[in-house]
Amino acid sequence: MSAHMTEDQTLLQDAAERYLRDSYDFNQRRERIAEGVYSDPNQWQAFAEMGWLALPVDEEFGGLGMGTREMAILAELCGQFLVTEPLIDAMTSTHAIIGVSQQQQSLLPRVAEGELIPIAAIDEAETASRLTPATTLTQTDEGWHLSGAKHWISAGASATHLTVLAQSADGLAWVLVPTAANGVKCEHFPTHDGRGGMNCQFDLVLEADHILLQGQPASDALEAYRTLAMTLSSAETLGATQAALNTTVDYTKQRVQFGQPLASFQALQHRMSNMLIQTELTRSLIYAACNAADSGHDDAARFARAAKVKATTVGRSVSQEAIQLHGGIATTDEYIVGHFFKRITALESWVCSKGEALKEFMALSPS
């Protein structure tokens, strides 16, 4: 992201890009994932020291108090460098859920320091909608009983805590659950994008201070979480899309066929030009979604869903074109292009699918 950035945003982008270029090696990433290590604790601590985890935390709680545009800058770089650490997952949970809870004063500094890694647990296997959980939170003589199961928790293998969406007597509720707590049984599984997922079963009694939000505030936080997640996932998709395009252009300049570089053939130039045009159109829409969110625009939710649909469509198209223009080498694990495609396809269904986002966009009336 570079258009119309403030000085602080430019400094953030330059510093983050320089760090990831120098310190986030693709081959080391591959070796780590092959060993079942989806998140590097040293990288996470470095993120904390550079202030990335403090971006969505208000200044009064030791954070930087920055907005959606700044978070999207990091999200785009995560896509460009295929970061497996759950940065956008944690930022989204922090900003939309923990940041509006009564426990914000005690929890937010721990997030900013990298001690607490919160990941939202929403999806369930048996429910028809992501928005109507079967997981229940009930009050008993011993405390608050959480019962149910969550599946397909993206980047869940890296979480220290889950923000669990449950149904209570007062409506929806967000509950903060340590993954190592008694009564929590979790199963990790590898994912094709290298981030590692998790399924969890809950049958435990919690103190009241584990309940972050209930009733209407919880419903409002769910909407805020989904809107922010759509915007940041679109930004990360954009980063992976741009990186796939750049890698393809570089490859076609070097690969020689019939005595000429592939980039000299007009038919391929036209294909790469179309890839660039669609990528730039996506970038403009994501900028608009970020600006709408940060300015409190009434249409912020529509912009987020439009960005999700556009980024998902273009990301898949461009990454598929990149694979075709590379040929067979792009399908190997050792070459980076196929990994951009894998991350883009994983982001397609995070929080909501393209089809769900499109339906919600059409249902929302423009202001």
Rank of each mutant, 00 (worst) to 15 (best):
249 V>P: 01
180 A>E: 10
203 D>G: 03
73 I>F: 02
7 E>R: 08
139 Q>A: 12
301 A>M: 12
205 V>E: 10
266 Q>L: 11
105 Q>M: 05
316 R>S: 05
10 T>C: 03
19 Y>C: 02
206 L>F: 06
37 V>S: 12
170 D>S: 15
289 A>P: 00
134 A>G: 14
171 G>T: 14
18 R>H: 03
172 L>E: 05
128 A>T: 03
140 T>R: 02
215 G>Y: 06
304 A>G: 03
106 S>G: 05
166 A>F: 08
113 E>K: 13
111 V>P: 01
35 E>I: 01
206 L>A: 03
77 L>W: 04
353 S>R: 03
7 E>I: 15
113 E>I: 04
101 S>C: 08
81 F>C: 08
298 D>A: 15
344 I>R: 02
59 E>A: 13
75 A>T: 10
338 G>N: 04
163 T>C: 15
363 A>K: 14
195 R>F: 00
288 A>R: 01
27 N>Y: 07
277 I>M: 01
81 F>W: 13
224 A>H: 11
47 F>R: 02
271 R>Y: 00
239 G>S: 10
254 Q>N: 02
149 A>T: 13
339 H>S: 06
239 G>I: 08
10 T>E: 08
278 Q>P: 00
357 A>S: 14
258 F>H: 07
245 L>I: 11
304 A>V: 09
165 L>A: 08
353 S>D: 03
50 M>N: 13
232 L>R: 05
23 S>D: 08
169 A>Q: 14
253 K>G: 02
76 E>C: 07
134 A>S: 11
90 A>C: 15
167 Q>G: 09
78 C>P: 07
137 L>S: 08
80 Q>W: 05
361 F>H: 14
77 L>I: 07
14 D>Y: 03
297 H>C: 14
199 N>Y: 03
235 A>N: 01
44 W>V: 09
59 E>H: 11
121 A>I: 15
247 T>K: 04
166 A>M: 13
63 G>T: 09
131 L>Q: 08
327 G>H: 08
293 A>F: 12
249 V>A: 04
254 Q>I: 06
256 V>R: 01
135 T>R: 01
345 T>Q: 10
55 L>Y: 13
31 E>H: 11
104 Q>C: 02
153 I>T: 11
199 N>D: 13
19 Y>S: 05
107 L>H: 10
18 R>C: 01
167 Q>R: 15
133 P>D: 07
345 T>M: 10
47 F>L: 05
200 C>D: 03
325 L>I: 04
297 H>G: 14
139 Q>S: 12
